[in-house]
Design a binder for these strands. Structure first.
Length: 204
DNA sequence: CTACCGATCGCCT
DNA sequence: GGCGATCGGTAGC
């Protein structure tokens, strides 16, 4: 069975997020994320926290990042480069997990229509691309993740993951807080030379 | 496959 | 005024 076709476990509860963002980011690999029924399997995440020079929260609350200082288990949505939306899942205060890529599983035709005539292999391969495919926007900033439009469920068994350096940042570039589903073909970028195997949270 | 560029705006120095 | 937690297009190897 491929990692993306394994049966789903229970919905994620708010307590799942009240942990350090790096732990949550690893635990999210293999989870099923849908927005209004459209989505797929999380295959790439990044963690950002309160004392992290690369994080939006490093200088404290602003209007943009207010959700990062709100309750765990809610969304933080921000505009990237003035054009794209990016979706984060809030963890401990001032920390969050950026969802960077999904393996599309639900609503492929809807995603393709929202994304235009682009390469079907890149429907959700990048934080901006997946927000376009799932129609995530600022209207969802601050919303709870355990109620519509969101649906988030754990896999029955946690898959193996890989840790790597984060992408597209200039500070704290060596912090290994990018998490990848091993072997996934739906990543925004392949693993770098700095990638190293992670440990399963639920070994057999 | 990698490299560069422009678009475009909130937040920072 | 500068710089991004990015993307799609184009150019080149």
């Amino acid at each position: 069975m491929t990692p993306s076709s394994r049966p789903l476990g229970p919905p994620l509860r708010a307590g799942f997020f009240a942990r350090p963002a790096a732990d949550v980011a690893a635990s999210l690999i293999g989870c099923d994320l849908r927005v209004n029924g459209i989505g797929g399997i999380i295959v790439e995440t990044e963690a950002y926290d309160r004392s992290d020079p690369a994080s939006h929260s490093v200088n404290g609350p602003t209007r943009r990042n207010a959700s990062m200082f709100g309750p765990p288990g809610h969304a933080y949505v921000y505009r990237s480069y003035g054009i794209h939306w990016c979706l984060n899942l809030v963890c401990e205060p001032g920390s969050a997990v950026l969802i960077r890529a999904l393996e599309p599983r639900h609503g492929l035709e809807t995603m393709a229509a929202r994304r235009g005539l682009s390469d079907p292999r890149r429907l959700c391969a990048g934080p901006g691309r997946l927000c376009q495919a799932l129609a995530v926007s600022l209207a969802m900033d601050g919303l709870a993740l355990d109620a519509p439009p969101f649906a988030l469920a754990a896999p029955e068994t946690a898959p193996a993951w890989i840790t790597d350096r984060r992408i597209g940042i200039s500070r704290a570039v060596e912090t290994p807080w990018r998490f990848l589903l091993a072997g996934s073909r739906a990543l925004s970028r392949p693993a770098s030379r700095h990638a190293t195997p992670g440990r399963s949270l639920t070994p057999p």
